[in-house]
Write a protein that binds this DNA or RNA. Sequence first.
DNA 1: GTGGCTTGATACCCATGGGTATGTTCACTA
DNA 2: TAGTGAACATACCCATGGGTATCAAGCCAC
Lengths: 201, 201
Amino acid sequence: MATHPTIKAEVTALKRERTIGAAAQLFYDRGYEKTTLEAVAETLGVTKPFIYGHFKSKAELLADICTRGVSASLVAIDTALELEASPTEKLRNFARDFLLAVLGNQRNIAILTREEKNLEPADFDRLSALRREFDRKLVSLLRSGIEAGEFHLADPYVAALSIGGLVSWAYVWYRPHGRLSLDALADEVSALILSMVGVKT
Amino acid sequence: MATHPTIKAEVTALKRERTIGAAAQLFYDRGYEKTTLEAVAETLGVTKPFIYGHFKSKAELLADICTRGVSASLVAIDTALELEASPTEKLRNFARDFLLAVLGNQRNIAILTREEKNLEPADFDRLSALRREFDRKLVSLLRSGIEAGEFHLADPYVAALSIGGLVSWAYVWYRPHGRLSLDALADEVSALILSMVGVKT
DNA sequence: GTGGCTTGATACCCATGGGTATGTTCACTA
DNA sequence: TAGTGAACATACCCATGGGTATCAAGCCAC
């Protein structure tokens, strides 16, 4: 009797998960407005009311997908800040994690970037706040590196936005099964970023 | 008699120009699919058939706007490659020009990035080819710097894509009348990029 | 000035797709 | 094994907006 509600909840969660997955793939491939909920339902082998039983609107699906995109990046910066290590090591780890987060959420990040105008204003504001939080934290990491004499940067704000862009943009050009492995790519990008902030190698 | 056709052509060009400008502003503010041609017409103080007299479809408007975005970046790399200067100086100039091109075409670049799924396949392919051309040329610039012993990069492809992303992403965060002037920003970003490729300062 | 042609406004069509009212099935309870 | 309710399919509504047929007005040639 204690397991019944749990199983039910798990089933519901699974259905939401599958729906979000199917929607993300289609939004990524075709774009949000060009994707009909009928198409999403067909991918899942169900019909529209199935979706409306779990989401109140198409925009809610979009918001969920985008939230995953931002959250992945935030986890990367939070993890780095909690490390017991020098700013250089924190940044090295962050750069790797951040790139892996972006590429592991390539579809979500792409949708977040492309479809922000299709978000409900409330969701847009919430996600914008998360992005600003990410930027603030990255600036603080860069600042600590400057103060420790490890980084050499005239303007940590511009550097933070540059790093954010450099890595976020990877969703545009990365192709799985490309020339480099994910790991090699992460090392390479990490080295570029350390060099950019003026870490002596 | 020789001037008549010319004036007519100029008037036609002006109408196209104004239409593209109004459309770009609205696409940028609201998104492509959320912008009706009626709204574009209203901005111009005309009606839909005016637009259809100069463009064969909404998608053609989008393609024109996006083409301007890519072209601006291509001009920057072409200009740099034609310079009689060291790779370091070429890259320094390119970085500045590229950033200024992106920010001078902020709306077009934003639309290009966000709305690629709404392009006709033929236009998408054409613009993709231009982007690849840009990447190839930037790689060749980085290569020449490595061969000259001025740049220190393990992988010029990854570096080119990183630079492209770093600068292209500026359309996301740049706000006119912000803390830094365009010029100061261009210098700062240029310095970051030179540092990234391993130019000794 | 008058006839033809170009331009764009008025008014319209209709495919599309988000969202929903209604009916049906199946799992679970007693 | 009959009854109850949740979950989902069927079938539908209708606002929206891209695109166009039609008509009016101005501009040019002659």
